[in-house]
Design a protein around this nucleic acid. Structure first.
Lengths: 343, 343
DNA sequence: ATATAATTTTGACGCGCGTAAATAAAAGCT
DNA sequence: AGCTTTTATTTACGCGCGTCAAAATTATAT
């Protein structure tokens, strides 16, 4: 690779022996030029290591190759993991993804949408904060920018929603728990930040109705995204005051369950299926850490790959379709029960 | 806020009654214009909601307001947390941070540096992969782009390094453990990905020498960034085969310790200070989950805030100084021992 | 009020590339 | 070979803003 003193596309085109508009076309889509010219360009590219100025490119293109990925809380490894997969898919498809985290804060979420507007992305994959989101702002954003919602739905907003089927999660855990032991109570935050939490509560109630069992909701206080600590404090209170209606607890999500386990350990309460255990605990999400808790968590797992892949795929369809799909699709993927030590 | 049909800075300048070059100056640095004009611009800004085109801006500016943040592994909440703080500081200082994760992969790290070059950032905060990094490439990058290394040092590379003092971590845990019980052995990966691991091993050996105690290194196999699983498998092997030289284990980092705890639970081994416990376990990092493990982890904590703040502050100094500091500074922050249940 | 310094305006050019239309060349087909 | 279709070239303009120099204005100090 020789020293590249190439300042712009004109010079590179000259070195290639190919006209600048063709080079420009190549960089927008390598497949849009004849294979023989593509080869010549790529040979020159190898030799001279030229890269077009992205600012000049994006300024004038109808559509950039940028994709925004927004997650509500990146310190949650669940979102880190899903973001990783999505990022990979975007890069492989020739896009430039940029990752944003709202860090659980409404203002940050709005600020991100603002930043995203000026990035003029081809599309956005947005996992909203949920209850804490400013829905009007998100709706307005989605009108201007082709957006797929994932993980957490907002009715009617965005071109499509891709997520997990909360009923599938809860039905499996409830069925399993009630089949193998006592009736599960449902442990959750009183004011959950995420709409999935509400769907899970309803699913629990519905499943209990179907099974002809009496439902018990255990609601704990706490706000924000520090679910482990909220779960821990809530569990401490519930356990100390003997408020637990049954010996089988189904947490709304794994992070609450991690806190619950921590509380149990503090109080010397053994959790699991063994004879010396007094509580069974199960949960939902298959959080990356759930297999390392003590005991490991029985949980219903997201189909990470399917959700990520389908969300990305839907976004690409949306982009190809010029920014609008015929109808707003909602796609839900089923959960997979993972039986581990805690129940 | 009236409907903004403002297409460019010219139109906005006309609406302001201020010349475009002055507006341009304002957007580069609001303090560079007279307070009275600043007020007029900001009043108009409120009314018309104009935002300059970032692509046109960045194309022509000598220096963008972009800052790149690169972490080796975002699914590790430790990095997610530090990235969050750094991001905040950058935004508050009027910069536009972009977050990248190498996801533990050398090729990704190189690809990120490549992307960063074309972003022409004012500066970069880079936490390298460590052993897996292509040092030559990073070195070359740092010659072109003002870069501060953090978390993981590469000798002589970058304008400065800001991180934690590994000796401070290990000296405190070793001192505490050996004072309150049996001599600790050091539990680590045979080929650690991160250079901090090597520093910690040396610190352990040095501390043991000073205390006139016999050191024991317990090296386990495994590659990659799935430390919990590596720790779990390593611990299972060590515990089953009775290879543990003492009842006190000091893990190189919390994620290994989380895996270790998981293994202990599987084998029915109780960990902690209580009488019925057979192992004491301590570690380093104060991972966000370390307080929720069972038992909670005694660990040495990073001064997250100090590291983040000083890294950012140093980067700003570097940018102000035009991209080069007089000498390469290495700044290390001391750890803080956090005593919890595991030791 | 006057001199001086600081700020703003005017006018103009350039950045690197996208894009469009007309033309030319190449490829594919019969 | 002659035709059609596809692809590349030529030429030219525009995007939105940074930046520069000279001129005009405004603020500050004496």
């Amino acid at each position: 690779m020789s020293q590249n003193n190439i300042r712009n596309m004109d010079e590179f085109a000259a070195l290639c022996g190919i006209s600048r508009p063709t080079i420009s076309k190549y960089f927008f889509d390598p497949n849009s030029v004849r294979p023989s010219t593509r080869d010549r360009i790529e040979a020159a590219l190898k030799e001279y290591d030229y890269r077009p100025n992205i600012y000049a490119m994006n300024q004038n293109r109808r559509l950039t190759k940028n994709i925004g990925i927004v997650v509500p809380y990146l310190a949650d490894p669940f979102f880190a993991e899903i973001a990783r997969v999505i990022e990979r898919r975007c890069i492989d498809a020739g896009f430039t993804p940029t990752l944003f985290s709202s860090h659980g804060d409404q203002n940050q979420e709005i600020a991100i949408l603002d930043t995203l507007r000026s990035l003029r992305p081809a599309g956005v994959l947005l996992a909203p904060l949920g209850r804490a989101s400013d829905k009007a702002q998100i709706e307005e954003f989605c009108r201007d920018v082709p957006t797929i919602l994932f993980d957490s739905n907002i009715e009617g907003v965005g071109a499509a929603f891709v997520g997990s089927d909360n009923f599938s999660f809860v039905s499996q855990t409830v069925e399993y728990l009630s089949r193998t032991g006592n009736v599960p109570c449902f442990f959750e935050m009183r004011d959950p930040a995420n709409p999935n939490a509400n769907k899970r509560r309803h699913a629990y109630l519905e499943m209990m109705r179907r099974l002809n069992l009496e439902p018990h909701l255990v609601k704990i206080d706490g706000a924000g995204w520090g679910f482990e600590e909220i779960g821990r404090l809530g569990a401490l209170k519930v356990l100390k005051e003997g408020l637990l209606p049954t010996d089988t607890v189904l947490c709304s999500n794994d992070r609450l369950a991690i806190g619950f386990l921590s509380a149990c350990h503090e109080l010397g309460i053994r959790v699991g299926r063994d004879e010396d255990c007094t509580i069974r605990l199960a949960s939902h999400d298959d959080h990356p850490y759930s297999r390392f808790t003590c005991p490991s968590l029985t949980t219903a797992a997201h189909d990470y790959e399917a959700v990520s892949d389908y969300a990305v795929e839907t976004l690409f369809r949306l982009i190809d379709a010029g920014g609008a799909l015929e109808t707003r699709e909602e796609t839900l993927f089923a959960a997979r029960l993972i039986m581990r030590g805690s129940a």
